[in-house]
Design a protein around this nucleic acid. Structure first.
Lengths: 138, 138
DNA sequence: TAGGTATTGATAAACGTTATTAAACAGCAT
DNA sequence: ATGCTGTTTAATAACGTTTATCAATACCTA
């Protein structure tokens, strides 16, 4: 899983990281693929998956396993929380203080060795708010 | 998505709900399928998926979209938090107070209409703690 | 009992992700 | 430069989970 030695900084890896860093959204592997493909039309989807996974393992990027079916990736590795729009599925950062102390609370309340936590809010983004004013929401 | 009228309480639905209610784990659809199949050997996997989805829509059960590849289901619908073992993937409840006030904090810090939140802790369960004492952890 | 709707089981299809593989490539020592 | 060695790639196949399709069946109402 972790191999720092002999890990090359290839053009593909560089551009994947660059493109991911450009956006504040939290793109899926497929979305990253689309972004990267504009600059490297011959890149394979497998390469994108492989390297996103690799970078997440090494800790250069963050792999989010949030609601919805796809994994999402984030160039910001500092701990922070997320909101997911229940309507369109988009994920944004939420800039509120990280509750580090609840890890200890959770550890006391369980017999797990707690390593960390993540908070995912669910809501309706302003875009969908406008569109689906009176429409069904889910 | 939501159809309360003309929704029949079939044997299949009854047993799916019964079996899910029996366990405190948070089984995947496949695990529910296995449990139910012991009592209804001819039930189809599709039926299990369809009805778990349906019950979650109606609100009888909870669909958890936690880390890992599969969705998990929970007969306890009252809001509560979860821990996921990073080693074996199992999900348990964490019995700590639900932080309802952070929804408002989050709403102020974003332009989402916040509907709710979920906290997922990650850690190592006692089982894996024993086994992989000095082993790699992921 | 007959007619209409809801539901089922079986199967196929869709979707996201991971594994496989031959070819291309980078670095290094001759 | 040339060849050696290991890494990475693109393409493709395989995989696991979930959803859709559909004919057959079960249930409800009259």
């Amino acid at each position: 899983m972790e191999q720092l030695p002999n890990m090359r900084l290839t053009t593909q890896r560089q551009i994947i990281l660059e493109e991911l860093s450009k956006v504040t959204s939290h793109p899926t592997a497929n979305e990253v693929y689309d972004m990267v493909r504009r600059r490297l039309p011959r890149i394979g989807l497998g390469t994108v998956y492989r390297n996103l996974e690799l970078m997440a393992d090494v800790g250069v990027i963050l792999k989010l396993e949030v609601g919805g079916t796809q994994k999402r990736f984030d160039a910001t590795v500092e701990p922070h929380y997320h909101v997911r729009c229940s309507s369109c599925g988009k994920v944004d950062d939420i800039d509120i203080a990280v509750q580090e102390q609840i890890n200890q609370v959770a550890e006391k309340a369980s017999n797990y060795k707690i390593l960390g936590h993540h908070i995912e809010f669910s809501g309706i983004c302003s875009d969908c708010m406008g569109k689906n004013q009176e429409t069904d929401i889910n």
